[in-house]
Amino acid sequence: MKKLLTCAFVIAFAVPGGAALAAGPSVPVDDANINLEDTTSLQRGAEYFFQYCIGCHSLEHARYNRIGQDLGLTEEQVAEKFVHTRDAAGDPTGVGQLIEIAMRPDDAEEWFAQPAPDLTLTARHRGPDWIYTVLRNFYLDDSRPLGVNNATFEAMGMPHALWELQGWQKNVGEDGHIELELVEEGKMSTEEYDEVVRDITAFMTYVAEPIRMEREAMGMYVIGFLILFTILAYLLKKEYWRDVH
């Protein structure tokens, strides 16, 4: 019976962790080193995302006004910076709406072979480090339909949307080894571009779980309460059993 309970305990707690590891990225990634408490970084990341990414990728599980509230922006600022679509009547999309794109799925399938995925939960599925690494690892590849490949996500059917900022990289590795070298400079230095990607990664990490910082802060209070309760329970136990011992 004891062995059965032990096996049940191991299965209950070990299998989900193993499944999570199996579902995660299996390629080497760089440390994104993001700071979700840096509101300025999140604001910059949001502006870059809505400038370069929203043409193809939606955030269907997020709302404009919620992002504005969390990032310290007014509804007027949100409408000016982030809203680029219109409703059926031709009016600008309301800030209370979910973040969708204007590109029709049929057009996306014709141009890119399939519709671009929604990115709301990408940071939870892949992790911030994966996003950060992917956005820095595009390189020229004439064998690909769009002329680019990615060292982290091979055969990705996506153009390099940030090429103007980063420039173009080329694979100079040999024997199947990928080694990227900048062959055409962009508008930014490598350090400046890495900071842009870090801001975008921070924003996408926030979007994937807007309540994360609040949850983590609440967790500290809960742990503190449990510690205090444990101490009180121990003292109470000693008081009750004092005469017995």
Results as ranks from 00 to 15, higher is better:
residue 89 A to Q: 11
residue 89 A to M: 13
residue 91 D to I: 05
residue 91 D to G: 05
residue 91 D to H: 11
residue 92 P to N: 10
residue 93 T to Y: 03
residue 95 V to A: 09
residue 95 V to Q: 05
residue 95 V to M: 06
residue 95 V to S: 08
residue 95 V to F: 06
residue 96 G to D: 15
residue 97 Q to C: 05
residue 97 Q to D: 13
residue 101 I to Q: 08
residue 103 M to R: 14
residue 105 P to D: 07
residue 107 D to C: 07
residue 108 A to F: 05
residue 111 W to H: 06
residue 112 F to W: 14
residue 113 A to Y: 10
residue 113 A to Q: 11
residue 113 A to K: 09
residue 114 Q to W: 07
residue 114 Q to V: 13
residue 115 P to T: 01
residue 117 P to V: 07
residue 118 D to W: 07
residue 119 L to C: 05
residue 120 T to E: 13
residue 121 L to R: 15
residue 121 L to N: 15
residue 122 T to L: 12
residue 122 T to W: 04
residue 122 T to D: 04
residue 122 T to Y: 02
residue 122 T to S: 10
residue 123 A to K: 03
residue 125 H to P: 00
residue 126 R to V: 01
residue 127 G to T: 07
residue 128 P to C: 04
residue 129 D to V: 02
residue 129 D to N: 14
residue 130 W to H: 13
residue 130 W to F: 13
residue 131 I to K: 01
residue 133 T to E: 01
residue 134 V to H: 04
residue 135 L to R: 02
residue 137 N to R: 11
residue 139 Y to N: 03
residue 140 L to K: 13
residue 140 L to I: 11
residue 140 L to N: 09
residue 140 L to M: 09
residue 140 L to R: 13
residue 141 D to H: 09
residue 143 S to E: 15
residue 144 R to Q: 13
residue 146 L to G: 02
residue 146 L to S: 01
residue 147 G to C: 10
residue 147 G to V: 14
residue 149 N to G: 07
residue 150 N to K: 04
residue 150 N to M: 05
residue 150 N to E: 07
residue 151 A to W: 01
residue 155 A to I: 01
residue 155 A to W: 09
residue 155 A to S: 15
residue 156 M to P: 00
residue 159 P to Q: 05
residue 161 A to Q: 10
residue 162 L to F: 13
residue 164 E to K: 15
residue 164 E to R: 11
residue 165 L to V: 07
residue 165 L to G: 03
residue 165 L to M: 14
residue 166 Q to R: 15
residue 166 Q to E: 12
residue 166 Q to P: 00
residue 167 G to S: 08
